[in-house]
Each structure stands twice: as structure tokens, then as C-alpha cells.
Amino acid sequence: MSTEDLDKDHDSVYDGLLDADHAGDDSQWAFGTDFEDPLAGVDTTLPDGADAGALAAYCLMLGDDALIGSHRLSQWSSRAHDLEDDIALSNIALDLLGQARLLLARAAAADPGVVPELPEGSPVPPEDALAFFRDEGGFRNVRLVEQPNGDFAETVARLLVTSVWRLALLERLAGSRDTVLAAIAEKGVKEVTYHRDYAARWVLTLAHGTEESRARLVAGLDVVWPLHDELFRTTDVERTVAEQQVGVDPASVADEVGVLIDHVLSVAGLERPTRAAAGPVAGGTGRDGRHTEAMGPLLAKMQVVARAHPTGLW
């Protein structure tokens, strides 16, 4: 047998997919051979009187909360204490990634000016350009979602706060005059309901578990708390979209979120942490593109492959 024949024997198992019979048959490819527009066929016309720039900026805020939160949760994959929770955290991350994709696509459709420029001929769709080609200052997520995971108890504490808050926002956003945002929110409500229940139940389990689990949860809540106030700080963009009835003023959900978190903490036999709010930096927070030092390394990891191949097709 010649070397050539040997090589032939060791051809890739995927070669069969390239048979002439299947040429041009996209169904052979698990993820398709090109990108699809997640809003294909969805009417993305702006509602009357809605400001395109403000709507796009608002979609980036909610989209970035989901994208960066999803990235952090996905870092638990293969690292959780058991398979069930590994899968649960990954599925929560996947739900958020799906919401992020729709929200970033909605931002790009509302105002194409928000999408970073890419080299000519790049096949990168707008939502990917927003995720992978914006620099740190362009991200509008709250600082809480970008924090390192810490241990499982800290992740649960953070997920409790972020999911109670996000669900309260999405429930109201389902009534947005922007039918695209309303539809994204309506879908998201069903998903984040699970995230909130998951986090709240784990808070109770850890609080009533062992001395160690309770101590870790208390420590986790302490770490999370200083960035909690920022979730209810209204920016100009949020004020504008709330006035135009396309978005939600986060200050309007503060009471409800407080009641729900207090309820979970009281069933857990815990007090609200007393640590002081982290406050803005140079007059701004995550919503203004001012992030903590955790954000740079997170983006470096998340974006490096896409940036190395700006004309790559995945």
C-alpha cells in the first residue's frame, strides 16, 4: 500500500458530507453554511414618535446585560459541583445569549450607526459585530453582570439579584410600543422566570444547608451588594425610551425587586447586606460605558477569536 493510499484511508470522516450528491445541500451542516438574520421577516419599523438612537442605545443596554451575564455563566460549563447544575447554568447562559442576539439585532435594525465598521467583504452579521468588535467603552451593561463568578454561592447571589431585576423589567417591556422589543420581552419573561426560581431555590438550599454553605452565601451577597444600586439608576436613554413608551425606567421596578429579594432573604433567614453602594466612576456607571477592571479580561477572551479573523466564516 502506498503512502497515498494510506492517506486516503485516513481521510476525514466528514468527507462523505462533501459528496457530489450533497453539493449545495445546506442541511448537511449542523449550523448551516451561513448566518441567518434572527429577525428575518420581522417588521422592524419604528413605532410613531420613537427616537431611533435612543431605542438602539436601550437595546444595547438590555442586550449587553444578557450577553455579558451569559458569558460569565458559560464559564461554569464543566466546572459546577454536579452535572445537573452545570447543565442548568449553561442553559441559563444559552437563554440569555438568545435574548442578547435578538436585542443586539434589534439595536442594529433601529440604528445601523451603532454597528462597528468591519473590513470590506466581512460576513459578520450586525449582532456579531456589536458583540465582538466593540471596545469596552462601547458596552452598556450594568457592572454587576461583568463581575467574576466567585464560588457557586456568589454566582447564585448574583443570579438572584440580576434575574429578579431582569424579570421585572421584561414583564413591563412586554407592553412596549415597539412590537419587536415587546415580542423579545414576552419570550424572555418565560425564560427568566426559570432563572429566578433556580437562583431563589438555591439561596434557600445554601442558607439552610451547612454552616459552610450559609457562610459562603452571606459572603457572596456581600460581594454582590455594592453594585446592586446601579440597577435602578435611570440614565437619559432610559428616561427617553420610558417617556416614549418603548422602554422601561429601571427606577420604576426598584420597589418590586426589593420586596421580592427581601422575601427570599427572609425565608432564608438572612438580612439584606449593609455594604455601601459602589457608586459611579467619574459620573458614570456601566450604562455609560464605565466598567470595572474585570471587564477588560472578559472581553479579551470573548472577542479574541472573532477579532483575529474578521472575515472568517463560522
Binding site: D25, D26, S27, W29, A30, F31, G32, T33, F35, E36, P38, L94, D95, L96, L97, G98, Q99, R101, L102, I184, K187, G188, E191
Partner: peptide, 19 residues
């Protein structure tokens, strides 16, 4: 999509187009 992040949407589309 069943869920927002359903990774099967592109495959569903491709299968429909192909058939």
C-alpha cells in the same frame, strides 16, 4: 423558536429549504 437561544433554528431553516 421554542426558546430565544434555541440553537436549532438555523438547522430547521436549512432542513425546510432543502426539502
Amino acid at each position: 423558536p421554542t426558546y430565544s437561544g434555541c440553537p436549532a433554528m438555523a438547522t430547521m431553516r436549512d432542513d425546510l429549504v432543502s426539502r
